[in-house]
Design a protein around this nucleic acid. Structure first.
Lengths: 144, 144
DNA sequence: TTAATTTCGGATATTTTTGTCCGAAATTAA
DNA sequence: TTAATTTCGGACAAAAATATCCGAAATTAA
């Protein structure tokens, strides 16, 4: 469903948010260790999130990545997915037709649009901070 | 959402079904021309559908691909997707965790499971023949 | 039988995605 | 200032997905 890059990006963002709540900046190394992702590849994805303004970074000793407290409740998964994969998930015909819309739909158009809208709604309605509560109380996990 | 292979596979199956209804077998060449797909690649995908028993093939002059009439109403999109992509779409954690289930869920587990169930239901409930009616009356399209 | 047609199957090529390496730049602290 | 740390950015490598090529096998018809 999501690309590997997206999976790593979301997991990283969740972990950064979790640590930012405690006022801790986290290094690339600790992120990759915590979410169990390839370090160098994760670096590329984090750079995309930084450029998109979803994550802040600081170089040098004690540096690392963070998300400002007020942003943690604002940022939606849809923004993270969009920053990494662009509108791939939101646009385009389910059967790959170049032109496919309500006027000239593919045979699957209506049903596909509905499913994708559900996915999109889910991503747009899910903020980072609501994913943290389960982690904090040990009900959900970021690795394994 | 779907792989290119799946997109071609579904479009091909729809076109074969449409022609089979008229008692016509269709060649690889005409399929690729009709659904606007790369011919040799489409051949590989058709072979998968044949091996899975979703499509019948016949070699030699006048040969080609077909779907028996009674199968057209039985075959679901879920079967086509499964024949081509396996259970990739139906299994696995949304965030890519190796172990993620109701007992040890990732932070997105519940929401993701719900969206994927919607997608799966849609594919399981959609049969080939119901996609043909729109095509027959010119309401939907397979190319463009 | 021969020639033409069409799918089958393996090898190969191209493109995209995923992943690695390494030096440069920035920052901190001794 | 110097050394250590950490992100940044570009080049490169590996793997997977997409796509092509071509001869073999099967079938049909002349």
């Amino acid at each position: 469903m999501f690309s590997k890059a997206c999976e790593y990006g979301i997991r990283a963002a969740i972990f950064i948010a979790l640590q930012s709540l405690q006022g801790r900046r986290v290094s690339l190394k600790s992120i990759a260790a915590e979410i169990n992702s390839p370090e160098a590849f994760t670096a590329k994805i984090l750079q995309q999130l930084v450029r998109s303004g979803l994550v802040e970074s600081l170089r040098g000793p004690g540096g690392g990545f963070s998300i400002p407290g007020d942003r943690i409740a604002q940022i939606r998964l849809s923004e993270i997915v969009y920053a990494i994969d662009g509108d791939k998930l939101y646009e385009g015909c389910g059967l790959g037709l170049e032109q496919c819309d309500a006027r000239y739909p593919c045979p699957l158009h209506d049903k596909f649009v509905e499913v994708r809208r559900d996915l999109r709604n889910m991503l747009e309605q899910t903020s980072l901070d609501e994913l943290l509560t389960g982690l904090e109380v040990g009900l959900t996990y970021l690795r394994r």
